[in-house]
Write a protein that binds this DNA or RNA. Sequence first.
DNA 1: TGCTTGACGACGA
DNA 2: CTCGTCGCCAAGC
Length: 110
Amino acid sequence: MKKGNDFFNDVYDVVRQIPVGRATSYGAIAAYLGQKRGARQVGWAMGSSYQEHDIPAHRVVNKAGELSASQLFETPTTMQERLESEGVKVDNNRIMDWDKVFWDPEKELI
DNA sequence: TGCTTGACGACGA
DNA sequence: CTCGTCGCCAAGC
């Protein structure tokens, strides 16, 4: 059986709980999972199979609120349009009011 | 088996 | 505030 898949499943579970109009960072998820230094692995895990799962990957951005994954979506603007559709303002691939939109699983999630 | 890359983060200039 | 460098972990070649 797989062994490191638990990390994947946990990442997906956290992402699914992200409320609409909010967003979180890879580092925050990694820290919530106890892998504070696994921020890159979070993005790698999702990018490897997020299409096979039903998770709002567009609500996950880097610590700077930048849509670094926008070009991995169907189109380079899909991620931005989806966020704006949920009420999140995006400017130059960066979330505006990031400090307000930021959703910390360690504090919001129990 | 070993080197390189990557949806990142923190620190310094 | 923006740019550049180093560090972490896992997968790919």
